[in-house]
Amino acid sequence: MSPLVMQLVGKIDRIFYTQSCLDQAAELSIQGLARSCGMSRFQLQRRFKKETGSSPQEFIAAQRLDVAAAYVRLSNQPLLDVAISMGYCGQQSFTRAFTRRWGMSPQRMRLSARAQYAACFAGPADAAIAQRIVHWRAPRRLWFKRYTGPYACVPEHWDRFKGELAGLAQRVKPPYYGIIYDDPDITPPQRIRYGCAIEASTGAGAAPEGWLELEVAPSRFAVFSICCSYLEGLARLRPRVLSWFAAQRATLGTAGVFELYEELPASEQRAIQLHVSLAD
């Protein structure tokens, strides 16, 4: 994927995860996207489809419903609120689009998820995984590389990212951020998107060529801490997070889900902090 199309994909992701539906509508217009990269609508559509296999409109519609599915499965947010936050005019149009995308209605997907996670909700949480609430009181500007593939490949992604860091002119300091986009229960393994990120240094200009940029707005996070290998953490953190959300009746916020590391992740044990954004 060329840097230009990669930047567009990153912008679309960022808009969905960090902006209101009104801002989304303004910034996700094809004319607006084309203008942002100095192209005509026709040039944008032709190039985007050639490199991604989808038209910009198809890609945006799919991303919108991917994000919606995460809120349907992993939050207690009313379905009408999910529909409106994703830019739909009402629950009926949202349900039709959602059902075409996922083969089931939002309500059925939520009930299916509740049944699937029943053991997590009913059983005791892993007491070894500490949890606390923290506040990020200032925005954080991240530079990141996005990778695609099963979560089992995440250690390989970080190995590649380590090589990318060597090409930066600035000295890179921890923490390192893992940006989680997709729910492995609904996204095919080969399509799971994961970002490896650092904080941009104070006064830094635009992200280096080939990198994407994301600003994480101030937010309140539930933080789950564990020391283990990445794949062990994946297996143990998920039930802990789900059981906590069920007990607290909490709802996901728009700042997303991030992993934080003081050292670059590897296959061996590492201290992992999973930050899950909470709605106000």
Score class of each variant (00 low, 15 high):
residue 203 G to T: 01
residue 121 F to K: 02
residue 43 Q to S: 15
residue 94 F to V: 00
residue 117 Y to W: 11
residue 130 A to W: 03
residue 3 P to R: 08
residue 168 L to G: 03
residue 123 G to S: 06
residue 61 A to F: 07
residue 276 V to Y: 08
residue 224 F to T: 04
residue 201 S to M: 02
residue 65 L to R: 07
residue 119 A to N: 12
residue 174 P to V: 01
residue 270 R to Q: 14
residue 99 T to W: 05
residue 60 I to W: 08
residue 84 I to G: 00
residue 113 A to K: 00
residue 241 V to Q: 10
residue 113 A to T: 04
residue 248 Q to K: 10
residue 60 I to P: 07
residue 247 A to G: 03
residue 220 R to C: 13
residue 59 F to D: 06
residue 220 R to A: 10
residue 162 K to R: 15
residue 35 R to P: 00
residue 124 P to A: 13
residue 267 S to N: 11
residue 112 S to C: 07
residue 181 Y to V: 08
residue 138 A to D: 13
residue 221 F to W: 10
residue 134 V to A: 05
residue 23 D to M: 15
residue 139 P to K: 09
residue 271 A to S: 14
residue 100 R to W: 12
residue 138 A to Y: 11
residue 66 D to P: 02
residue 226 I to K: 02
residue 195 G to N: 05
residue 80 L to T: 14
residue 25 A to H: 14
residue 62 A to L: 11
residue 125 A to E: 08
residue 110 R to C: 00
residue 43 Q to N: 13
residue 98 F to E: 01
residue 270 R to F: 05
residue 15 I to S: 12
residue 261 Y to Q: 04
residue 194 Y to L: 08
residue 127 A to N: 04
residue 277 S to P: 08
residue 146 R to F: 03
residue 62 A to N: 10
residue 85 S to R: 11
residue 202 T to E: 14
residue 39 M to A: 08
residue 113 A to D: 02
residue 90 G to K: 04
residue 239 P to Q: 06
residue 196 C to H: 00
residue 193 R to P: 06
residue 248 Q to I: 01
residue 235 A to H: 08
residue 268 E to G: 15
residue 46 R to F: 01
residue 223 V to K: 01
residue 118 A to Y: 11
residue 153 C to H: 13
residue 192 I to H: 00
residue 160 R to N: 13
residue 202 T to N: 07
residue 163 G to M: 04
residue 138 A to T: 14
residue 185 D to F: 12
residue 144 F to D: 03
residue 8 L to T: 12
residue 191 R to M: 14
residue 60 I to K: 08
residue 189 P to Q: 00
residue 225 S to D: 14
residue 224 F to K: 01
residue 209 E to Y: 10
residue 203 G to Q: 02
residue 34 A to K: 04
residue 156 E to G: 13
residue 59 F to Q: 07
residue 6 M to F: 10
residue 132 R to D: 12
residue 3 P to F: 09
residue 12 I to P: 03
residue 181 Y to K: 08
residue 245 F to R: 06
residue 120 C to F: 15
residue 179 I to M: 13
residue 143 W to H: 10
residue 174 P to R: 00
residue 225 S to T: 15
residue 117 Y to L: 03
residue 10 G to D: 05
residue 202 T to V: 08
residue 67 V to C: 13
residue 150 P to T: 02
residue 42 F to G: 12
residue 12 I to Y: 03
residue 196 C to K: 00
residue 21 C to E: 14
residue 11 K to P: 03
residue 24 Q to V: 05
residue 74 L to W: 09
residue 74 L to T: 07
residue 12 I to N: 05
residue 4 L to R: 12
residue 257 V to L: 06
residue 55 S to M: 01
residue 60 I to Y: 07
residue 171 R to A: 09
residue 171 R to K: 10
residue 166 A to L: 09
residue 121 F to I: 03
residue 61 A to D: 14
residue 213 E to S: 13
residue 34 A to M: 06
residue 4 L to D: 11
residue 148 T to M: 11
residue 13 D to W: 15
residue 238 R to Q: 12
residue 67 V to S: 09
residue 39 M to N: 02
residue 70 A to W: 09
residue 57 Q to A: 12
residue 275 H to L: 15
residue 42 F to S: 15
residue 261 Y to P: 05
residue 211 W to A: 08
residue 184 P to D: 05
residue 262 E to G: 07
residue 195 G to I: 06
residue 8 L to E: 11
residue 217 A to K: 15
residue 219 S to C: 15
residue 149 G to N: 01
residue 26 A to S: 14
residue 218 P to N: 10
residue 4 L to F: 04
residue 35 R to W: 04
residue 95 T to H: 01
residue 197 A to N: 07
residue 98 F to P: 00
residue 256 G to L: 01
residue 8 L to R: 10
